[in-house]
């Protein structure tokens, strides 16, 4: 019998490999925004999230306000609250308060997905193993991308700038294809965002994202409420 820690690490390997290449793109982006290799890796180590970090770096680069940073992180990362609530129903008895405080650091989309798919209750060791693997991929990839971003030919590093956005599209498109309501919400959010970019340009990019997303999601909730008990 493998220990839960080992099992978690093994289940975390595909996550780590995926993170490695995406965070490579983040590293390039962060250095491009004027951050050092160390700061870029530090951001990845402390946040362990893609969209929030990308938006955070945009705010840093634009010299945005702290309030803007707080609101943007809240809006983008609020999905983790939902995942945390869902996962909290599935925890092993060993999950005492200190374990919950520690493991909540590692609730990402992918770790949540893999933990949720487990048959039995999730133990702290299992989650730590998976978080450890994911951490190595995420922070290692960021450092490599940030370091290589300075060395790579411009043609390659600029093409890597699209990696994170490509991943975002890969998250959005399949559910939008399956569900008309998700499709409408996604198109609405994109439409409002385009409006802020080209028409109402006084708003900073962070606030534009918040307003676009909140308005589109509220529209979705008002007109297409989800079925009871559906994810």
């Amino acid at each position: 019998m493998k220990s839960d820690l080992t099992k978690g690490m093994i289940h975390g390997i595909p996550i780590a490999l995926g993170y490695l290449s995406v965070s490579f793109g983040f590293g390039i982006k962060a250095v491009g925004a004027g951050l050092s290799v160390f700061s870029s890796a530090m951001i990845s180590a402390l946040n362990l999230t893609s969209a929030g970090q990308a938006a955070g770096v945009d705010i840093i680069a634009a010299g945005g306000t702290i309030i803007e940073m707080i609101l943007v992180q809240l809006t983008i990362n609020i999905r983790y609250s939902l995942m945390a609530i869902s996962l909290s129903q599935k925890l092993d008895k060993k999950f005492t308060l200190p374990h919950r405080l520690a493991a909540s650091y590692g609730i990402t989309d992918e770790i949540f997905a893999v933990c949720s798919a487990q048959k039995g209750p999730v133990t702290p060791s299992y989650m730590y193993g998976m978080i450890f693997a994911a951490f190595l991929g995420w922070v290692g990839g960021t450092a490599l991308g940030a370091a290589a971003g300075e060395l790579l030919p411009a043609a390659i590093s600029s093409a890597m700038g699209i990696v994170l956005y490509g991943m975002f599209l890969a998250i959005i498109v399949p559910p939008a294809k399956k569900s008309l309501s998700v499709f409408i919400v996604v198109i609405t959010a994109a439409g409002i965002s385009v409006f802020f970019r080209y028409v109402l340009t006084t708003l900073s990019s962070g606030f534009a994202v918040i307003i676009s997303a909140v308005a589109a999601a509220m529209l979705g909730a008002a007109f297409f409420p989800i079925k009871e008990e559906s994810e």
């Binding site: 990308a54 609020i78 999905r79 939902l82 956005y165 309501s181 676009s212 997303a213 999601a217 979705g220």
Partner: peptide, 13 residues
């Protein structure tokens, strides 16, 4: 809460 992740990613992208 169900719609917000998709809306955020779309507006960011």
């Amino acid at each position: 809460l169900f719609y917000i992740p998709y809306a955020v990613l779309s507006a960011m992208t």
